Simulated assay, not measured.
Amino acid sequence: MTMLNFDERKVPLVFRENRRARRIIMRLDYGAASVVIVLPKRTSRQEGKRFALSNKDWIAERLDQLAEPIPFRNGAVVPFLGEPHRIRHRATARGVVWCEEGEINVAGYEEHLPRRVHEWLKAEAKREIETRARDKAEAIGKKITKISIRDTKSRWGSCTDEGELAFSWRLILAPKYVLDYVVGHEVAHLKEMNHSPKFWKLCRELAPRSINLARDWLEAHGTELYRYGR
């Protein structure tokens, strides 16, 4: 694996090819703390590396924005729907994972705790998002063909022409009004596959809480959500 050196740290450089790309594209994968270089057709990795090296200041600036990772382990504090919750290992308890009084309780062997917390958060995201998405779609007379919950890197949600929606499970870490806005945004695309005034009017109807407030929160705190579980 190619590495870039930044003072006392090394950052992985990941190459991806995209025949439709017209130029070299560079972005930071916040989840993996790596630099992704998208290469157009007939562009070598060496050219991609030179491009990255010529933009080390840009990379360093964004790396400095990355907060320290917070693994899922006993005693760690993670947000759940925007509220801080402490993970508690309950070795002798029955069940798997449950939430109460500001704590995420995890039964069983401690070595299984990270996986169980991740699976529980993803399941909660699916439940919360699906309920909101289907209610909003019904309100505008549209049908969702599929809802996927993923660990997306470049966007919080997406919508296809076929009516398939996809969302990041990490939205369950954000405040409810932020999650509700992202769901409303993608459902609005079922009717308006654009960002026209009609789209934003519909988006505001589907997510009554201030859209600007949610967008500002994502701009200021969105990258922080990638620190959890790393």
Score class of each variant (00 low, 15 high):
102 G>F: 09
96 V>R: 11
105 N>G: 09
99 C>F: 14
134 R>S: 14
140 I>V: 11
160 T>G: 08
110 E>K: 03
160 T>R: 03
185 H>K: 01
111 E>G: 04
169 W>C: 02
130 E>R: 11
129 I>V: 10
167 F>V: 00
119 E>D: 15
154 S>R: 11
96 V>T: 13
164 E>Q: 13
151 D>S: 13
106 V>T: 05
186 E>T: 10
162 E>A: 15
115 R>Y: 10
100 E>N: 09
121 L>E: 01
174 A>N: 05
94 R>W: 11
102 G>N: 05
110 E>H: 03
157 G>N: 12
183 V>N: 10
176 K>I: 11
156 W>A: 02
149 I>K: 01
174 A>R: 02
127 R>T: 10
146 K>L: 14
116 R>V: 01
157 G>Y: 13
144 I>Y: 09
159 C>N: 05
115 R>D: 09
150 R>H: 07
187 V>C: 11
97 V>T: 03
186 E>V: 12
97 V>F: 03
136 K>E: 14
121 L>M: 06
167 F>P: 00
103 E>C: 12
143 K>Y: 11
161 D>H: 15
92 T>S: 15
153 K>T: 14
132 R>G: 12
111 E>C: 08
164 E>G: 08
128 E>T: 14
97 V>D: 01
152 T>I: 07
122 K>G: 05
144 I>H: 10
108 G>N: 00
173 L>K: 04
188 A>K: 04
132 R>A: 15
193 M>R: 10
182 V>L: 12
101 E>K: 11
145 T>D: 14
112 H>I: 00
103 E>R: 06
138 E>A: 15
165 L>Y: 13
189 H>R: 06
156 W>H: 03
168 S>I: 01
122 K>W: 07
138 E>P: 00
139 A>H: 04
92 T>Q: 15
147 I>Y: 13
100 E>V: 08
193 M>F: 15
143 K>D: 11
163 G>D: 05
98 W>Y: 12
